[in-house]
Amino acid sequence: MADNDGEQAIPGSTGTQLTQLTTGASVDPGQLVDLYDYPDDAGLYLRANMIGSLDGAATVTGSSGGLGGDGDRAVFAAMRANADVILVGAGTVRTERYHGAHLPVSQRQRRQARGQSEVPVIAVVTASGAIDPSTPLFNESEIAPIVVTSASGAANVASRVSGAQVVVAEHHLRAGQVDLPTALAELRGRGLTRVLCEGGPALLGTLLSARLVDELCLTIAPTTVAGGAIRIASSPAEALTSWRRVLLLGDADGYLFARHVRT
């Protein structure tokens, strides 16, 4: 799910009209944030948010940004408004030119009232620690990003970016690799329990294989891509997971927004 240069201009939910397709009810911006809130008292809860075309492509010319629309950006902003932490792979940060999260005053006040920071922190997953310090994320964020990495990667991060928060979550059997359950436990220890994963496909595939994803939100763009574009999740082996749809929205541009919980 993209956080490209255009995302900076989004003050929150846009004026795009969304409709609950199961009931026909219109959804205003305030309701949209509520519809994408996290379950109460769920403990650590990981939601993934991705976009794909009608023919299953997760990118156009290597980036997911070309698939999005106004409704998608509104849903994207609503999910960010509720998250404690945004989990994203380093490759996606580079490709999509990630920024720190930006929220309007009303959403900041809402977060403060329930004990959250004004904006969610972004946690970048990279085993090697090979992050690009020129990425806007590391220069324009209100809250210093967290870098989730291996023991060897931590030294690499320190040499590239000053001030980044580093979480070492090395796999106990595979040196130099990040162990995601350990990483999530570390985030939970910091009080970051509402987790939003924005990809990319390799990170999502690893999380799905480990059955760490509680909820999958998928925007279906009314486009086809063909070519050799990747899917929203990739992993070395298949990992069949069953889901139950709990929300289905649509907009006037033909986008569908589905929210599924793992069964």
Rank of each mutant, 00 (worst) to 15 (best):
A2D: 12
D5E: 07
E7G: 09
P11H: 06
T14H: 02
G15L: 08
G15Q: 09
T16L: 09
G24M: 11
S26A: 15
V27Q: 01
G30D: 15
V33H: 01
D34W: 03
Y38C: 05
Y38H: 07
D40C: 05
D41E: 11
A42P: 07
G43F: 05
Y45Q: 01
L54K: 10
G56D: 06
T59Y: 03
S63H: 08
S63A: 10
G69L: 02
D70A: 15
D72S: 11
A77R: 09
A78E: 01
A81K: 01
N82V: 13
A83S: 08
V85M: 02
I86F: 04
L87Y: 03
V88R: 03
A90N: 07
G91K: 00
T95L: 12
T95Q: 14
A101F: 04
H102G: 03
P104F: 13
V105Q: 12
R111K: 14
R111F: 05
Q112M: 11
G115N: 03
E118Y: 06
P120R: 01
P120T: 05
V121A: 04
I122N: 02
V125T: 06
A127N: 15
G129W: 12
G129S: 13
I131E: 02
D132H: 10
P133Q: 04
S134A: 15
S134Q: 14
T135I: 15
P136W: 12
L137S: 04
F138W: 08
I146D: 00
V148A: 06
T149I: 02
S152Y: 02
A155L: 10
E170R: 10
A175I: 07
P181V: 01
L184E: 02
E186T: 07
E186R: 14
G189A: 10
G191V: 10
G191R: 07
V195Y: 08
V195F: 12
L196E: 09
C197T: 08
E198I: 11
E198Y: 13
A202D: 13
L204R: 01
G205V: 02
A210Y: 01
E215T: 10
C217F: 06
C217I: 08
I220M: 12
I220H: 11
P222C: 15
V225M: 08
G228V: 05
I230C: 11
I232Q: 05
S234N: 14
W243R: 03
R244L: 06
R245F: 15
L249M: 10
A252Q: 11
A252V: 10
Y255F: 15
Y255W: 07
H260W: 11
V261W: 00
R262C: 14
T263Q: 15
